[in-house]
């Protein structure tokens, strides 16, 4: 049962990831990306990481994807006539990605399977919260500063155009 679920989720993830790259309409690309993220969240549940699955759905499907779709609709990019690379560049991209996959598989293939206790509970909120707030308290606080800095930076970048544009017109 778990194996069938794994193969189904893997198929969904890889198929929709390919559609992200190859679909012409940017809106469809982002929607396929949401499907990929849900499949990956299913994989997280499958390896007993319930907390990360919930965080993944909230952060990616809830926040980042809304941001992507919002920007695409703000820029009015939902049209099919977007620029494409030449066929030579496309073939070179496919070959480069294929060679990269071969190298990665060859380097990671011989990983040993360690004996694990089945049904381990390290991915639950209880255990993960204890680790996060004891061992990793300082990085946790620093990541909050990072998010604040990103927020301030986004506001600054967004405002810069308004301050420079009137000067250009003079």
């Amino acid at each position: 049962m778990t194996a069938y679920l794994f193969y189904f989720l893997s198929f969904v993830a890889i198929f929709s990831a390919l559609l992200v790259v190859f679909s012409k309409n940017p809106v469809y690309s982002i929607l396929y990306l949401i499907i990929t993220f849900f499949a990956i969240a299913g994989h997280y549940v499958l390896v007993n990481a319930q907390f990360l699955a919930a965080v993944h759905v909230i952060v990616y499907a809830g926040a980042i994807m809304v941001l992507f779709l919002y920007v695409i609709m703000l820029l009015n990019l939902n049209k099919e006539d977007e620029p494409h690379k030449s066929y030579l560049a496309k073939i070179a991209a496919v070959i480069c990605a294929g060679i990269m996959m071969v190298v990665l598989v060859a380097s990671l293939r011989g990983t040993m399977q360690t004996a694990t206790k089945s049904g381990s509970e390290i991915g639950f909120v209880n255990n993960l919260g204890k680790v996060l707030f004891n061992e990793f308290l300082l990085p946790f606080e620093i990541s909050s500063i990072l998010l604040l800095a990103a927020m301030v930076g986004v506001v600054m970048v967004g405002k810069a155009d308004h301050t420079t544009q009137p000067q250009d017109k003079k």
Binding site: A17, V21, L77, P83, A97, G98, M100, L104, L108
Partner: peptide, 21 residues
Amino acid sequence: LSTVLFSIGVLGVLYRRNAII
């Protein structure tokens, strides 16, 4: 699985010209 997903990501970066994709 994750190698294939990573390679598809690399492929997309090299293949597309739309910066959002």
